[in-house]
Amino acid sequence: MLGSCRGRTMNEVALKQYQSCWFIRSFEKAIAVQARAGNVPGLVHLSTGSEVADILLGQQLDPTRDHVTGSHRSHGLALACGADPVAVAKEILGREGGLSDGLAGTQHLLAPETGFLTSNGIVGAQVPLAAGGALSANTAAVGGIGVAVFGDGAANQGAVLETMNLAATLNLPMLFVMYNNGMAQTTAAVDATSGSYCARAESFGLTAWSADSDAYTDCLKTLRDAVTYTRLGSPAFVEVTVSRDHGHYFGDEERSEFPPSKAMACFAKWLSEQGVKDQLLNTARCAAEKDAAAAVAAAASAPFAAANALSPWLGVQGGTDG
């Protein structure tokens, strides 16, 4: 995506990314407000803290040929891939006009037209699906890739480990992106994981990188290198250190002693060091906050999906429904 930004300076591109990060953060903040007000049917798992990783990854991908799958914590990733924010918000809030008209919800966001195939309610289950995306991309032979984004908790699922081996044995163009936010639900990664994530991936024959989303340029370069490498036709792995600024789900404030995400502040600091004026940073942030608030407000003002949203699905399997 950055390569397509000819005519714009590096700073302009980065400032736009910064604005997109603020869009995700503000979107999640507005969803949290709706959740607190009881306007969300169930629990939501907010992606606050991984915005920089979401945006920098999303910008490396091509909706016309790449297939991305994400975890239960993928609001930001779906937005970063280009899913319509109002439709995403409506789906999270269970409203008419949501991505799936409110039938799927926060953990099952599907926007295949953007390349964001699906998020998932089962930890790690999205990873084999991305291998299928990689297989299709390989067959289509247009340089597309499959990308599975999952957390450090999923890294201990057999589905993930099996798929690393499968992708390596079939030499699939598949990128495994592990967001390490240090917590698997309420269990600290250090208590749940033996050995090193990158070493695991390397032991399967994958090329592996690690990056910290607090370090903008390093994270950007790593993700760009990993996507470029995968596009050439081999599987790869990236561990990206991110934060999780809420509990496992919003309202679950366990482990609130964790420091809040620094990635956005670090990004702002880097932009300042590049000579971007504070006023521009503030303008970008304000615009993002306004846009995100408007998207979520538009969703919240839409009616909840009616019971008849289910109607198209009744009787499709032989009229054995009750």
């Binding site: 799958t69 084999p128 291998a131 299928g132 299709s136 798929t163 499968l166 079939l170």
Partner: peptide, 28 residues
């Protein structure tokens, strides 16, 4: 070999790969 794909003994991975491939244009 591109259309007849032998896999490791990893049913979760290869059934899931089939599901993902079906979502993205193939008929596995």
């Amino acid at each position: 070999a591109e259309r007849m794909i032998d896999t490791p003994i990893s049913e979760t991975a290869f059934v899931g790969m089939g599901v993902g491939a079906a979502m993205t244009g193939l008929k596995p």
